Amino acid sequence: MSLRFVFVLLCCLAGAVHAEPARPTPQKAYLTLIIDDLGQNLPRDRRVLALPGPVTTAIMPDTPHATEFAREAHRAGKIVILHMPMDPATGPFAWHPELPIEELERRLDAAFKMVPYTAGINNHMGSRMTAQPVAMAWLMGELQRRHKFFVDSRTSAQTVAAQQAQKIDLASVSRDVFLDDERTEAAIYTQLQTAISLARKQGSAVMIGHPYPQTLAVLERELPKLKVQGIEWIDIRQMISVRSNRATAAHGKDGVYR
C-alpha cells in the first residue's frame, strides 16, 4: 500500500469524524386560501382573481353577479365553490333545520344552477344548520353522488359537518383561521401570521377571508412573501390531499373529527 494512498485515506477518515451530523428535513408548511361572499360586486371581486396564487372563490348563489363571476373565475383558472347559505342565513337558498330533505334538495339544486363550474361547497354562516346530523349526513351523501368536496367553515363548535363527511370518506377539509373577523389591516395581518405559525406547527392551515378592502390590501402585500418564508401556498384540492380527510388536533382526536 503506497504512502500516498494511506495519507488520502487518513484525511477522508478525519473529515468523516469532524463532519456535521445530518440535519432533519424541515416539515413542509402548506397554506390554502378561500375568499367567501363573492358575487356581489364585480370590480371588487376581480381583485380576488388578481391575487398571486391559487385562491379558491366561494360564490354566494343569491348575489347579482353569481353566475357571471363564477364564469370569470373559472376562465381565470381559479377553483369555484358554492358558498351555501345556512341558518341563521336567510334568503331563497338558505337551509334551515325545520325544512324537509326534499326542500333542502330543491334549494341546493337551485344554488348549483346559479353558480356554475363548482368543484365543491362550503357553508355561509350555518351555525345552527351544520349541527344537524341528519341533514349533514344527507348533504355529504349528495355531494359524494355529485363528485364534489366539502369545506367546513366551522362557524360553530357544534358542527358535525366534517364528521359526517369523514364517515363516508367524502373529500373534505376544515377551516383553521378566519382572517378578518376584525376589519383592520393590523388585525388581518396578525391573523395571517397566526395561520403561518399554525402551518409550521401542524403542517398546514386553511384560511378563509372576505373581499374587504383591508383584507385584499394585506393579501396583495403579504402573499408574494410566502415562498421566501418557506410556506407553500396550495389550492384547496391539494390541501384535501395533504390532510387525507384527517382531522387536525384542533378539530378532533387521532385524526377523527369531533
Rank of each mutant, 00 (worst) to 15 (best):
R75L: 13
I79Y: 03
D87Q: 11
T90A: 13
T90Q: 12
A94N: 05
W95C: 04
W95M: 07
H96R: 12
P97C: 08
L99H: 13
P100Q: 13
P100T: 11
E105K: 06
A110F: 09
A110Q: 11
F112K: 13
F112L: 15
M114N: 10
Y117F: 14
T118A: 10
N122H: 08
N122K: 05
T130P: 02
Q132G: 03
P133T: 13
P133F: 14
V134H: 15
A135T: 10
W138K: 02
W138E: 03
E142C: 09
Q144S: 12
R146S: 08
D152G: 03
D152R: 00
S153Q: 04
S153A: 13
R154A: 03
R154K: 12
Q158E: 12
Q158Y: 11
T159C: 08
A161R: 00
A161I: 02
A162L: 11
Q163L: 14
Q163N: 12
Q164C: 05
A165K: 00
K167M: 08
I168M: 14
S174G: 08
D176E: 05
V177K: 00
V177E: 00
V177N: 00
E182I: 14
E182V: 15
T184V: 09
T184F: 12
A186P: 05
A187W: 02
T190I: 07
Q191N: 11
Q193M: 10
